[in-house]
């Protein structure tokens, strides 16, 4: 058996920022902001990892540490066997990076010129470049604005261009800081499909930060949740739901409208005519038992079980932390 060597490694990494603030007329106050606080994790080749957390949690800082734009104050960072801050330019050829908040494409040039320039900067073989471009253009529907100067693109069009720009040189791993920012529903879906395809067909390891939990739900095999520079969750989506959002919902359609049903180990959260929503913890009961109980009280026409909503789960985690903060 071979032991997979992680492509991304974080070992007890800290990052402090020193901030000087004016305090009075001449005095300046020095405060230390700990953006990343003892973070450890490893990512295997071929994974798609979602990185979430509230504003200021340290997500962008992590991506900067991974790309060598920031050096850690303490701890060890390794990407593809290299130390990013020390071997930034060597690493640059092997990774893709995209910062949704920044413009990486050349502002005055048509999109296609930016791509062509990247071909030369990354020395992408002609043949490979053509193949990639043809495929990416189609997947992300770039054709209508391929010849438009970047400054004239809408945010969503530009972001799609930036995502392609990060992938043209066949990177082993891509770091995407908010790759779906400002995209409409259709474009978001396209970017997700694009990333899934790149991951499945090319084996690209993807690490992305987002505030859109649907990204996580559709894309990621693994989630890291960060809060105030610390990892508060690392694992799969199902396990996350089971752990934090144990509540599922049984939705029942009755033959007739009536008052809220009485159920053991569960509670009716909503009544809308003949339809009722019953929330239950799967540790304490299960859908079959509940359904039987409901059927004994009223004529049952139909029923469905809803999984916990990831939004709810994450909201709960963030809120829990908020309480811990005070």
């Amino acid at each position: 058996m071979t032991v997979a060597v992680p492509i991304i490694e974080f070992e007890d990494v800290h990052k402090d920022f020193v901030v000087h603030r004016k305090a009075g007329r001449l005095r300046r106050e020095r405060t230390v902001v700990r953006a990343v606080d003892g973070l450890s994790f490893a990512v295997e080749r071929g994974a798609i990892v979602g990185y979430i957390g509230p504003n200021g949690a340290g997500k962008s800082t992590t991506v900067k540490l991974l790309t060598g734009i920031l050096v850690p104050s303490a701890g060890r960072v390794s990407v593809a066997g290299l130390i990013p801050a020390k071997q930034r330019i060597t690493l640059a050829r092997r990774i893709g990076a995209m910062f949704g908040q920044r413009v990486q494409l050349w502002w005055d040039l048509p999109l296609i010129d930016s791509f062509d320039l990247l071909r030369h900067i990354y020395r992408i073989p002609e043949e490979r470049y053509r193949q990639n471009l043809t495929e990416f253009r189609e997947l992300l529907e770039l054709d209508p604005f391929l010849r438009t100067p970047v400054r004239q693109l809408s945010l969503g069009q530009r972001i799609r261009g930036e995502v392609v720009a990060a992938m043209l040189h066949d990177p082993e791993v891509v770091f995407l800081d908010e790759p779906t920012i400002g995209l409409d529903v259709v474009a978001k879906q396209r970017v997700r499909e694009f990333l899934t395809a790149a991951n499945r067909e090319r084996g690209v390891t993807v690490m992305l930060t987002t505030h859109d939990l649907a990204d996580i739900e559709r894309l990621c095999s693994r989630i890291l949740i960060l809060d105030r520079g610390r990892l508060v969750y690392d694992g799969g989506l199902e396990a996350l739901k089971a752990r934090y959002g144990g509540e599922r919902t049984l939705v029942v359609d009755l033959e007739e409208s009536g008052p809220a049903l009485r159920v053991t180990d569960a509670r009716v959260t909503r009544v809308d005519g003949p339809r009722q929503w019953i929330a239950f913890d799967r540790e304490r009961t299960n859908a079959a038992r509940l359904a039987a109980e409901v059927a004994s009280q009223a004529a049952l026409r139909d029923l469905t079980v809803e999984e916990p909503d990831i939004e709810d789960v994450v909201r709960r985690i963030y809120a829990e932390r908020q309480v811990g903060r005070t």
Partner: peptide, 17 residues
């Protein structure tokens, strides 16, 4: 603006470019 960071993740020295 901080956009300089994106120049630093390219495999070419910003001065040369």
């Amino acid at each position: 603006s901080g956009d300089i960071v994106t120049d630093l993740v390219r495999p070419i020295h910003p001065l040369r470019a």
